[in-house]
Design a protein around this nucleic acid. Structure first.
Length: 539
RNA sequence: CGCGGCGUGGAGCAGUCCGGUUAGCUCGCCAGGCUCAUAACCUGGAGGUCGUAGGUUCAAAUCCUACCGCCGCAACCA
């Protein structure tokens, strides 16, 4: 089988009816680590990371109307705000698609036309509970739970049916099940796959209504302009319009099929059932993998202990604002208060990407202080300082010398492979745990056991060797940490004259201890013989 | 019987799929050490009948059954 030499990944596109919160940030972070890792391994030019906003929904136009804004202007401003947050978090996306963009609309129409021409779309009638106030259909569940009334307007819902277009999703049940079976990694983690399989087996798939009538916001259906395209049918297409489907065939063919769609676990069924079916209906391949990550829940101290999902601004009956903690729902505030690197590290270390995780201010400080400040940051500081004090930052005579291993019993190659496996499997927390516990902590122990600050008084060369060896741990760790905390990792790596340029390091470079042509030396700028703390302690 | 997750020393977790060395790790706590370092780092210690009750087995946190408690999702909230 021909190996694909490119890597294409996406995150779910977000509704811009409110600003991004830590939950959405969590998804982008996990995806960003993967993109950065892939770029290290196969080169910048072969990786494409797509993100975007999902704007063609009635909710967005309503929100804009509430604010008295033009819908498009509102969308553009939200897109700007979203990207501001993603940039502050160092999310390294290559393109940001707005579904209200002309290119997306055109490509979308081409796609739906194709599906229509292929006979997978037919006209029918859709019936449901309708609210005149909301101008939308409510689910049977909402109808039942609110005694037949609209939950917001408190007026009776009326049974209404209207013509619409259906997509023949039901025609793909068998093919989907077969696809899951033949591609066991298609849906990750496995738990989500089991859910979908049992869902299809027990409930089957029904044809879905992919049109809305009489909306002025959205994408018109090319073969019947009275209708607009149902948001999901349009949103999913972002993943292909963003890489040129319908107008840049070469780029599209270079990257499709998608290597991984990163999504939240709640929208698994859209991505693993509807989406492949849509693609097949248009004669395209299904994506290679869909990774459904877990959610982050705010965990607040004491009585407020209620976990809030989704709308994170609301915790049970209390709002964050009332608690004076509103900044917690705003990634920007956390970044400003601490740092993007700290934000990245915390979520990636603390919350298992495949499962759910908690965010609490106390835990945030704890993880930051113990692992970033006390362990990694302090290790960096002590090595730099001793080296500077005793050798003016130069390890004279180490040119051509191969460093010795500092962690007893650790097979470096195997260790790097373990970390690599965790990264590729999106088990970021385990990757970080391994780096800290199995590598950085033992390096601190190595320094303690060999006490170069003492040894330097009796055997200066021996002390130099110890430090020279220990510096390698910083090199190895910085390479392994590059996808996670890019800026800090770079700061560590470039504090020495390691021969390989930072932009070119790969995970494989971390697996070997090699001699370098010049004497190793400290190149970082020091202040009074000390480096600037990488991670100042909090509190 | 809608679907799924969780319950392991004070807190947060790993281990459970493929039962078997003294049940690991982080934080906290106590006592030492060290003093190169961001009051950091290192060593040692106290603290757990692994939700409950049964069952299988030479042997169970790990497999089976029942029960209790907590939580999330349920087709446009990541």
């Amino acid at each position: 089988m021909a190996a694909k030499t490119t890597w294409f990944q996406t995150t779910a596109i977000d509704y811009p009816n409110s600003r991004p919160h830590i939950g959405t940030a969590f998804e982008k972070l996990g995806a960003d680590v993967q993109a950065r890792y892939r770029r290290m391994e196969i080169g910048e030019e072969n990786v494409f990371f797509l993100m975007g906003n999902d704007e063609n929904t009635v909710k967005v136009s309503k929100r804009a109307a509430e604010l008295g804004l033009d819908t498009q202007a509102y969308c553009d401003d939200m897109a700007r705000q979203f990207q501001e947050v993603w940039k502050a978090l160092d999310i390294s996306y290559d393109t940001f698609v707005q579904t209200s963009s002309e290119r997306h609309k055109q490509c979308c129409r081409k796609f739906i036309q194709k599906v229509y021409d292929n006979g997978y779309i037919y006209k029918g009638e859709y019936g449901g509970w309708y609210c005149d106030g909301c101008e939308e259909f409510k689910s049977d569940k909402q109808h039942a739970e609110n005694a037949g009334n609209c939950p917001t307007h408190r007026t009776p819902l009326v049974r209404r049916s209207e013509p619409c277009y259906f997509f023949k999703l039901s025609a793909f049940s068998e093919r989907l099940l077969k696809h899951y079976e033949e591609n066991p990694d298609f849906i990750q983690p496995e738990i989500r796959k089991n859910e979908i399989v049992s869902l299809i087996k027990t409930e089957g798939l029904r044809d879905i209504n992919i049109s809305r009538k009489g909306e002025d916001w959205g994408i018109q259906i090319p073969f019947d302009p009275e209708f607009t395209i149902y948001v999901w049918f349009d949103a999913l297409l972002t993943y292909i319009t963003g890489i040129g489907y319908g107008d840049d065939e070469a780029t599209f063919r270079k990257y499709w099929p998608c290597d991984t769609h990163f999504i939240g676990k709640d929208i698994t069924r859209f991505h693993t059932a509807l989406w492949p079916a849509m693609l097949w209906a248009a004669g395209e391949e299904a994506p290679t993998k869909v990774f459904a990550h877990g959610f982050v829940y705010l965990k607040l101290p004491e009585k407020v202990g209620d976990k809030g999902a989704g709308e994170l601004v609301k915790i049970g009956k209390t709002t964050l604002k009332e608690l004076g903690l509103e900044y917690l729902a705003e990634p920007m505030e956390i970044i400003k208060k601490f740092s993007a690197e700290a934000f990245r590290y915390f979520f990636l270390r603390e919350c298992p990407y495949p499962g759910d995780g908690d965010f609490s201010p106390e835990r945030f400080v704890e993880v930051y202080n113990s692992e970033l400040a006390n362990n990694l940051g302090n290790l960096f500081s002590r090595e730099m300082t001793i080296t500077w004090k005793n050798f003016e930052g130069v390890f004279a005579g180490t040119a051509g010398k191969v460093p010795e291993a500092v962690v007893p019993g650790l097979d470096l190659k195997a260790f790097v492979e373990t970390v690599r496996g965790h990264v590729e499997g999106c088990r970021y927390n385990q990757a970080l745990q391994a780096i800290v516990q199995d590598f950085l902590t033992p390096t601190n122990q190595y320094l303690e056991a060999n006490a170069p600050w003492k040894l330097v008084k009796t055997d200066k060369d021996a002390a130099k060797r110890v430090l020279f060896n220990a510096v390698q741990s910083l090199r190895v760790a910085s390479i392994l940490l590059k996808p996670f905390i890019p800026k800090s990792a770079e700061a560590i790596y470039t504090s020495f004259n390691f021969p390989k340029p930072w932009a070119e390091v790969k995970y494989a470079d971390a697996a070997e201890l090699l001699a370098q042509p010049d004497d190793l030396r400290v190149t970082a700028e020091l202040f009074d013989g000390k480096p600037k703390p990488l991670f100042p302690r909090i509190g």
